[in-house]
Design a protein around this nucleic acid. Structure first.
Length: 146
RNA sequence: CGGAGCGGACCAGGUGAUCGUCGGCUUCUUUAACUGUCCCGAGCUUCGGUUCGGGGGAAGAAAGAGCGGGAGGAAAGUCCGAGCUCCAAAGGACAGAAUGCCGGUUAAUGGCCGGUGGGGGCGACCCCGAGGAAAGUGCCACAGAGAAUGAACCGCCUUGGCCAAUCACAUACCCACCGAGCAGCCUUCGGCUCUCGGCGGACUACGGGGUUGCACAAGGUAAGGGUGAAAAGGCGAGGUAAGAGCUCACCGGGUCGGCGGUAACGUCGAUCGCUAGGCAAACCCCAUUCGGAGCAAGACGAAAUAGGGAGGCGUUCGAGGGCGGUCCGCCCGAGCCUCCGGGUAGCGUCGCUCGAGGCGUGCGGUAACGCGCGUCCUAGAUGAAUGAUCACCACCCGCAUCCCGGCAACGGGUGCGGGAACAGGACUCGGCUUACGGUCCCUCCGACCU
RNA sequence: GCGGGAGUAACUCAGUGGUAGAGUGCAACCUUGCCAAGGUUGACGUCGAGAGUUCGAAUCUCUUCUCCCGCU
């Protein structure tokens, strides 16, 4: 029973383990990840190390970057919230063994929840293709660099 | 009803459902791999301890459950002022910066309140960095005669010069007329000539006088013109050759005194060579204030550690540093600086939310504000929390013309669609400024009706 | 969060109270058989915005907007 509950919650929750929390994590993804471009986002995908790292969760880790160009603080926060909501409600759009950073581009503040979800859904195939390409190119991602 | 005083006060959509987020509490479940603690056994020991194994217990921790919280009037800009922290203490001088009518308020301010003065508006009301220009230095372009130890271009006036023009007057000459004559001539009436007097006219000459003119000279003048943003108190009268504070009245200004006011200042009176422009948001002077940095302040901890080589300076005669404007003074002080080649970390906890706090109320004060009483606890994140979806209600706009009222404009209902501002805590407060949706109240002006 | 700096022609910059300038670029013409270079001429500005001081503001003062840099 607790297992089932935990599983059900993990489908729709957004705990801390599924986020990027340090600047170093962001920098690693931004330097080593593959890019997928959409109209209002740049999505960076970096597979986590398959070796070792037993305590790593079996889900994706998401980070959102919204620069000052996008708008004032209210609009930037809004973009972050909407993107997180999209991840939370439809986690199957993201590969479970990768770190993903979504960088908002100009105009992202005008999107609502439905528009962002549609945009990510259209980019789903490209995201998974980026993952397989990254794995094929370098089977041992630069985990040891940090 | 319309416009205004950008006068004051208030709100910042609500309710429910599902999922999600942040930290707090409960100690209700679960876990026993992690940390710490207690007990037992064994090993080592410098007898202080320490390592390994087993167990208890449930403190921390992790996951779950429950409970109750979670952005603003500007949270913003960072323009001021403080608290707090560190720099040994926060000392002196200079430099530098800020402020600048007066009084009050406050922890403090450049804020706020009240007053004074000035400006704007018919008014309600609004705006003002508003000390000093005979301490000194500087600037005032162009134009204009002159722009600051006061100036003469035109004009006005006086005197002189040169002539010229003109006017009036008087005298002489001339002409005409009238009268007189003891003068002369002609044939009478009478006429002519001459002389004298009167009146009128014309013209020239000289004389003096007036007026006007002059690329003239010497002076007087600051009324007027013109230039300019600004021209040496304003305006009127007297006065004068023309003028002028030269004199006078009024206004303005300076000084002195009385009165009112805590004061800024106001008011009254006397007095005056009214003679000295403006700019200090130009330098500056005067008065007052200011030590510097800022929660990335700072404290504790974890992890890691290492120190070496070369050269220079120095050990109480003191290198270097605190000290981040300079100097003095004070303090620390045996290491410090440069180069070469290396290592580690860019993490955690505290600071971190109870405070010059909010709300209500009474009293004092014109007010800002202060004092008392009661009551409430109301975010503490750190790639950074308040969201998403749906439904209903309330507000605004548009469309439909389906229904009702009305001749109509239109109003009400119904349905559909859209909108709902500015904007997100980052140590905390007090202000200021800027952005912005709406509601209400007060006041003023205008129009209409009674 | 804190501290500092900048904004002038299309671009890079001068201009520190008195008519807004230089270089490059742009346009036209000359030169050349053509191009480049060269020469002549010309256009080009809300001095980031709004108030204030002043007779007069790109310049001085205040407010505001945008951009840049530094500090762990």
């Amino acid at each position: 029973m607790p297992a089932a509950r935990a599983a059900g919650l993990s489908v729709c929750g957004f705990p801390r383990t599924e986020r990027l929390l340090r600047r170093g994590q962001y920098l690693r993804v931004q330097n080593g990840g593959r890019r997928v471009h959409t109209a209002h986002f740049v999505i960076l995908v970096l597979p986590r190390g398959v070796q070792g790292d037993a305590q790593g969760p079996a889900t994706a880790r998401i980070g959102v970057t919204v620069g000052k160009r996008v708008g004032n603080a209210v609009r930037r926060n809004r973009v972050k919230r909407v993107v997180r909501e999209v991840y939370r409600t439809s986690k199957t759009l993201f590969p479970t063994d990768c770190d993903v950073v979504l960088v908002a581009r100009l105009g992202a503040d005008r999107l609502d929840y439905g528009a962002v979800k549609a945009e990510v859904e259209r980019a789903r195939d490209a995201i998974f293709e980026a993952r397989t390409k990254a794995l094929a190119r370098d089977p041992r991602p630069p985990q040891s660099s940090l």
